[in-house]
Amino acid sequence: MLSDTSLREIQHELSKYPADRRQSALMAALRIAQDEHGWLSEPLIEYVAGVIRVPPVRAYEVASFYSMYELKPVGRNKICVCTNISCMLRGSDEVVEHLNKRLGIGLGETTADGKVTLKEVECLAACAGAPMMQVNRDYFENLTPQSIDEILDSLS
């Protein structure tokens, strides 16, 4: 279910912890699995649980607790807009509105071509650059409609 590279990465994570504390590598292992598949399906969570040797429900608890684990399929790109207080005061409502208009989707939805998923998230600790959003692995701060258009155009 996972490539050799991913399994090797998980083994590397496991090697960081004592042999009787394998559960410590669970979060990293779920991240590695998500990186490979884009999201964590239930069979994939069960598979990762098997690799870490924890009960499947334990892995599912962790996967469902953190919002960065995706339990449903997402688009090729993931846009996470912060709508917490600092960003809101600095105009995150307009950012969301612009994104909705440009992409034709609401928060929590994916474009029909599977290119972009739009997520609303809590504070990402970049208040100094509010309003902000995270696109895949990168932060984009001090957003304006123009800069958002540029970012969207650059997505593949």
């Binding site: 009960p55 599912y60 608890e61 469902s64």
Partner: peptide, 10 residues
Amino acid sequence: GIMEMGAPGR
């Protein structure tokens, strides 16, 4: 010894 119930979600 068999963890069957869990507390998923937050």
